[in-house]
Simulated assay, not measured.
Amino acid sequence: MPRVTGRVAASFTDVDGVTRLGDRYHSYPLKIAKAFSFDEGQLGIYMMDASPGIMSGDAYELEWRFGENTKAFITNQSYTKVHPMLCDAEGGYSDGPSQQIQRLHLSRGSYVEYLPEPLMLYKDASFDSRTEIRMENDSTLLISEVVCPGRTQRGELFQYLQYKNEFTVYYENELIYCAKQRIEPSMQRLQHIGGWENYTHYGTLYVFSERADIVFADALRDYLDKVVTDDLVSSGGSALYYGISRTYKYGILVSVMGVKVYELQEFLERAWKFARGRLFSGDPFVVRK
């Protein structure tokens, strides 16, 4: 079993239309570094990792509970970096894979934006990620992820051992989305036809809300088609491969692949701001790090 080396648990409450940070706990190297206020009573949270990253065999646990009618924005200060697995004297691996377990509970009427920095998988890294989300009636969640194939400037390209990702969402105790992903570069022909071909990075923006219907999906698709054609490509950006799909109910996924992480981040940021305006009537803002 991986040893739990970092834990964050926090709850949010609504006080006269303003969201406040309630009970919270964190253990080294994870830390709730700063809270700051946005308009409309929304509370922003920075999470910090004081270590160089997730070491071999370690595990992070993060649990967030959002009370009724709370409004929160959560991000972290830097990439989540997964270090190589350690070898024993016989040349095998002495630890199991590193892990990150996230649990989010959204009470009735809550609105949450959870936009962490990308995940970086170092050479010989093995990482299991599990995210479980439980939502109550009239709650809304915007959550993103971006995965890098390694430290590309060092020549690392799909040299990690394994990446597993399990993502489940329940709405009023009904399973509305479940995805399981397993990537083993040494066992899979990722950069061939039917795989990732020439793409190296991928990202996803998930939008879960009762208002995330087909009308919203079509409007978001039209907007992103215009962004890619008129803005990103015309400004000299690389080609992006993206698509929009709907979950069983109450959910939209924006998935994108590319070769430069900042281009995926910009694309997903545009999608987030569009969704924020439609679902929250919120003005776009910049989070400085």
Rank of each mutant, 00 (worst) to 15 (best):
L264E: 02
R130P: 00
G53P: 01
F158L: 05
Q265Y: 07
A179N: 12
F216C: 02
G6N: 00
E145H: 05
K123F: 02
L115R: 05
E266G: 13
Y170S: 09
C87D: 05
K260N: 13
R246T: 11
G194K: 00
E210N: 04
D138S: 08
S11M: 08
R278E: 13
R3G: 03
Y114M: 11
S98P: 04
G194M: 01
G203K: 01
K273V: 14
M187Q: 11
R278G: 01
Q191P: 02
S94V: 15
N137Q: 11
G194S: 06
T229P: 00
A217F: 03
F73C: 01
G243S: 11
D283V: 07
G57R: 01
R278I: 11
L190D: 04
R7C: 04
V254H: 02
N198H: 15
T229R: 04
L62I: 07
H192S: 14
A212E: 07
K249G: 05
P284C: 09
Y122P: 02
G203H: 02
D88R: 09
Q188R: 01
R108M: 11
H26F: 15
A217V: 06
D230R: 12
M47T: 08
N173V: 12
M187R: 14
R278V: 13
R7G: 09
R182W: 04
D16Q: 14
E40G: 03
S235A: 10
E156H: 09
G282L: 14
A219M: 04
L161H: 13
R288V: 07
M187T: 07
D128A: 10
L253Y: 03
I74V: 15
H26K: 01
L104M: 12
N137V: 12
G92H: 13
Y171C: 10
R288C: 07
R246A: 12
E172Y: 05
T247Y: 06
I252M: 02
L86E: 12
R151H: 02
I193T: 15
D95P: 08
L205S: 06
M257E: 10
I101V: 15
L175H: 09
R130Y: 14
A10C: 15
R108A: 08
Y111E: 08
S144Y: 00
Y241L: 14
T140W: 00
T131G: 02
R151V: 01
M120L: 15
F158G: 02
R7Y: 03
Q153A: 14
R211P: 03
N165S: 11
I32V: 10
E40C: 04
A125H: 06
E266V: 09
L264V: 14
I32P: 05
A72W: 00
T75Y: 14
E90A: 13
R270D: 06
L161P: 00
A10D: 13
V8P: 03
K81A: 02
Y79I: 05
A239Y: 13
G155M: 04
